[in-house]
Design a protein around this nucleic acid. Sequence first.
RNA 1: GGUCGGGUAGCUCAGUUGGUAGAGCAGAGGACUGAAAAUCCUCGUGCCGGCGGUUCAAGUCCGUCUCCGACCA
Length: 305
Amino acid sequence: MFGAIYERISRHFESWGGQATIAIVGATGTGKSVLAENIAERFDCGILSADSMQVYRFMDIGTAKVPIEERRVPYFGIDLVSPDEPYSAARYQEYAQNVLKEEHKSNRPVLVCGGTGLYIRAALDEFSFSPGTCVDNATRIRYEQLAAERGPAALHAQLAEKDPASAAAIHPHNVRRVVRALELLDNGSNYATQSAQMRNYQVREEVLYIGLMASREHLYHRLDLRVDNMMTAGLLDEVSWLLDQGYRAALTSMQAIGYKEFFPVLDGCAPIEEAISKIKYATHRYAKRQETWFKRDDRIEWFNL
RNA sequence: GGUCGGGUAGCUCAGUUGGUAGAGCAGAGGACUGAAAAUCCUCGUGCCGGCGGUUCAAGUCCGUCUCCGACCA
């Protein structure tokens, strides 16, 4: 199986050389990192991580970062910010596109590897996030309060009045997205127009997409084992250390799987076993969502494990 | 051996005064352009432990057997 992937990738390197980009995608636990490391070493190129949680420093075990001592090639996209710094797909896009530009300028191919679908697209697709300044936090909080006070339906109705197309595209219960659409309006943009671009998968010949997948049964088993291994590697200590440093539970970074589940344990109101099984279940669902995301991208060439 | 609980969806359990069952979790499918490991949508027929009985009708009442738990000997 690896042989087939190596062959496919070699061919791509031969045609594009230092301008080649190879994306290795798929659900968590399918072995993307190991494959990427092997290929990057063999073809002498760097790895750009496309992972919304590996960007945070100090969150090492739970986000399954490749340990520094095991890295044999340059890595990008890891440890970019501290856990209390707001990060976003837009910020990642700017960063990633810059890495790609710089590497290609030096005639080095790049391996993009990750499971955050939106980040993969932000890095490799020709689309831009809403122009202009980023919406300030106050606006967001205002809309969230509105939803809390008058209910999600009322907020959605407000959106429907101002922007029927976007309202139609977002389920009324999806407060987060309704809020975002309202923010965009305030900012002179439009959710529906933007998201329409998302369905446009442009083919760039220099980019090769390799997708890794495994049967659910097999994958879930592997993921469960990985969680157990994270525990022996000291995941609980990592979480408790982060909290000790003052990184509070409400932070986006702390919503990561393998972190938020331990808060009740550290507060002493839940047994550790409960957290572990919650982490396993959450990981299963996450893997499923990742598959759903990547499945519809027909540029991806799939390899079954 | 006896008394009392309890055996209902893969798991934990609800089930009103008898009218052939429903939640959470798990699981499956899907959406998704500035939080994306987030957020959101859809999907629940299962010998209601077995067998008899009462009744027009039993998960629901009665008898009996069986299994699990607690307690008493």
